[in-house]
């Protein structure tokens, strides 16, 4: 199976450029009336169906924002659930238009798999969790430990790097999904659970006795998570890029889901807000959309802060702090390029 996937990925990469050079994704999406958004088969806080079967989560909200900007309705999204292994093939084969699947931007994915990454929407890093009873205080104490690890992820590669650099050994227990990793970890089939820090926090929060498990202090990698599109359609990549920028900029400028309609009704005193909401200049037409594109994207789910708080923020079961993901003006590194 591995071979076939590699083969599929290779052919995907090979033909993607040729095929998509003439295909305008924007026109396809408009003709279809629905955005095919590649998400995960379930990562807590980022993408999961609720009890009614509606997809919800941080990544899902970005899908909805793009759909709102392009099609005028954040509900017009067809979610394509993928595993860590299949996500890029699905995107490259044209089954998906855009990908928001807590995906780390790396050079090889960008250049070799022929993806164009959108601005980072979540800065993450890989960490470890172990049972308190194991008595480890640092990841360097993990010599010989068995580690549950999701295949096809950067996590897998970081782990190998980290243990090699530190000259310690480990025994990988490969699993397919986060839920499976969790079951294996709780069932004692691996001593250590590793994934991005956001995933560790949410996983631990769901345990019966969260206090029995420690998250080790080391963060062993940089994981800038962002959306992605195929190579070869720059206009479509621009749409994705500026929707993400608009969502981040909206928080900085104080535009929220509640006040966006009022602020966008007529030009105000702040030219940045005017440009963002289309009351000044003609920025929408530069990416093939109308002037209200950003207004609709923000109205769909709110600005970055609202998306964060609703899905993964301190008041949710996941309870992540903003940390690196605060605006640059608040001590974080979120820094949206200006719309002008």
């Amino acid at each position: 199976m591995k071979k076939s996937i590699k083969y599929a990925a290779a052919v995907a990469a090979f033909t993607a450029t040729a095929m998509n050079a003439q295909a305008a994704t924007l026109d396809d999406v408009k003709a279809r009336g629905e955005l095919n958004c590649v998400v995960s088969t379930g990562v807590a806080g980022f993408a999961a169906p609720d009890d009614k079967g509606n997809w919800a989560g941080f990544d899902v909200d970005f899908c909805r924002a793009v759909a709102a900007a392009v099609l005028g309705d954040g509900e017009k999204v067809n979610f394509v659930p993928t595993t860590g292994k299949t996500r890029f093939t699905v995107l490259n084969s044209g089954e998906g238009d855009i990908l928001f699947r807590n995906t780390t931007e790396t050079m090889s994915r960008d250049a070799d798999l022929k993806l164009t990454f959108l601005p980072v929407n979540y800065y993450d890093g890989q960490g470890f969790m172990a049972a308190k009873a194991l008595g480890v205080e640092s990841a360097k104490d993990l010599d010989g430990a068995s580690i549950c690890i999701q295949t096809g992820t950067t996590t897998e590669l970081n782990l190998a790097d980290y243990f090699r650099t530190n000259g310690i050994s480990y025994e990988p227990v490969p699993v397919e999904t986060n839920a499976e990793a969790q079951t294996n970890y709780l069932g004692g089939r691996c001593d250590v659970f590793t994934t991005d820090a956001s995933g560790l926090a949410s996983t631990r929060a769901s345990f019966e006795n969260p206090a029995d498990h420690v998250i080790l202090p080391e963060i062993i990698s940089k994981e800038p998570l962002g959306g992605a599109v195929r190579h070869g359609d720059d206009q479509w990549a621009d749409i994705g890029k500026w929707v993400v920028n608009a969502i981040i900029a909206a928080e900085e400028l104080g535009v929220t889901q509640a006040n966006v309609a009022e602020m966008g009704a007529e030009a105000g005193d702040n030219p940045s807000i005017n440009r963002l909401l289309g009351t000044e200049g003609d920025f929408g037409s530069m990416i093939g959309l109308d002037a209200q594109w950003a207004m609709r994207a923000i109205a769909a789910g709110g600005n970055y802060g609202e998306l964060f708080d609703r899905n993964i923020g301190p008041d949710t079961a996941i309870g992540l702090e903003r940390g690196l993901n605060a605006q640059w003006s608040d001590g974080g590194i979120l820094y949206a390029a200006p719309i002008r």
Binding site: T41, A44, G45, A48, P49, N178, Q182, T203, F207, T316
Partner: peptide, 12 residues
């Protein structure tokens, strides 16, 4: 089932 397990309400 797997997707449902990722809902924070029901995780685990």
């Amino acid at each position: 089932g797997q997707a449902s397990l990722a809902d924070t309400k029901w995780q685990g």
